[in-house]
């Protein structure tokens, strides 16, 4: 199987998210960067699927040159090929991002053939536009289902088991929906589909040697323009300290009684 995963480099904030003075972006001066959690799981899922069925995993990102860090991380947990679409500091809107990704994917496929599966995150951890995967699938003329928390290769099609079908599970309140999507297909994955592995020493070494292909794309901007980012107004209330250690238990239970949750 050939699987492609699209990942986005995002800052990893702690207790609060600060915005730069011009309001244009998250102030990442003192922050590390990471891969969005949904996408980290998408990479793990791709690696597990190729471990079970054979094949190779390609990881693609559109971002600053520094996003190579996220590609190398993917290499350290088992991905094989890497494509970086470099952009300037300014992030691209979702339409533009999707067009560039779709073009770059088409370019890889022209030489190597179609990917059986392309995995996206359900939404990116930062901007969360809920659309890049759907737009790319549409560009490529492929089916896509979002919110996926389980993938199996082989599924029912016309009453028979078909190896060319990906069976995907989507969580809904109190259960799940099952989709039998014919490959080549695109799926939007959610955290919880698996528990991503940590890189091994061997993986870390391999990641240093991984070759990252660069593919520059120029596409037109879309119709959503950012004016500024700001933090929501928070109601800050004084914390009432009910006590220290187990001696605080009666005060806690007083509170529970007051709230009527003890009945």
């Amino acid at each position: 199987m050939r699987i492609l995963v699209c990942v986005k480099r995002v800052p990893a904030p702690g207790a609060r998210i600060n915005v730069t003075a011009d309001g244009q972006t998250v102030d990442a001066a003192h922050l590390g960067f990471t891969t969005s959690p949904h996408e980290e799981c998408a990479v793990e899922e791709a690696v597990q699927l190729t471990e079970a069925h054979g094949g190779e995993v390609t990881v693609m990102t559109l971002g600053p040159v520094a996003a190579e860090e996220q590609l190398r991380y993917a290499a350290s947990v088992g991905a094989h090929h890497f494509v970086l679409i470099p952009i300037d500091d300014v992030d691209w809107d979702p339409q533009r991002t999707a067009s560039a990704l779709a073009e770059a994917i088409a370019a890889v496929e022209e030489t190597n053939g179609a990917f059986d599966l392309i995995l996206f995150g359900n939404e990116s951890a930062d901007a969360g536009g809920f659309q890049v995967g759907v737009r790319v699938a549409n560009h490529l003329g492929r089916p896509i289902v979002n919110g996926i928390k389980g993938i199996e290769i082989g599924g029912e099609q016309g009453g028979e088991l078909d190896e060319g079908v990906a069976t995907a599970r989507r969580e809904i309140d109190g259960g799940f929906e099952v989709y039998n999507v014919p490959m080549p297909a695109v799926l939007g994955v959610k955290e919880g589909i698996n528990l991503p592995r940590y890189p091994t020493m061997k993986g870390r070494l391999a990641s240093k040697k991984a070759v990252v292909d660069t593919d520059e794309r120029t596409v037109e901007a879309g119709g959503q323009v950012r004016l500024r980012l700001h933090r929501p107004v928070e109601q800050i209330s004084e914390t009432v300290i009910l006590g220290t250690g187990p001696e605080a238990a009666p005060a806690v239970v007083d509170l529970l009684e007051e709230l009527g949750v003890l009945s």
Binding site: P13, V26, D126, G128, G223, L227, R228, L229, R231
Partner: peptide
Amino acid sequence: VQWGGSLLEDATLTA
């Protein structure tokens, strides 16, 4: 809403 609600974005939409 961005970041699942931790941050807000003002934007314009031309469409």
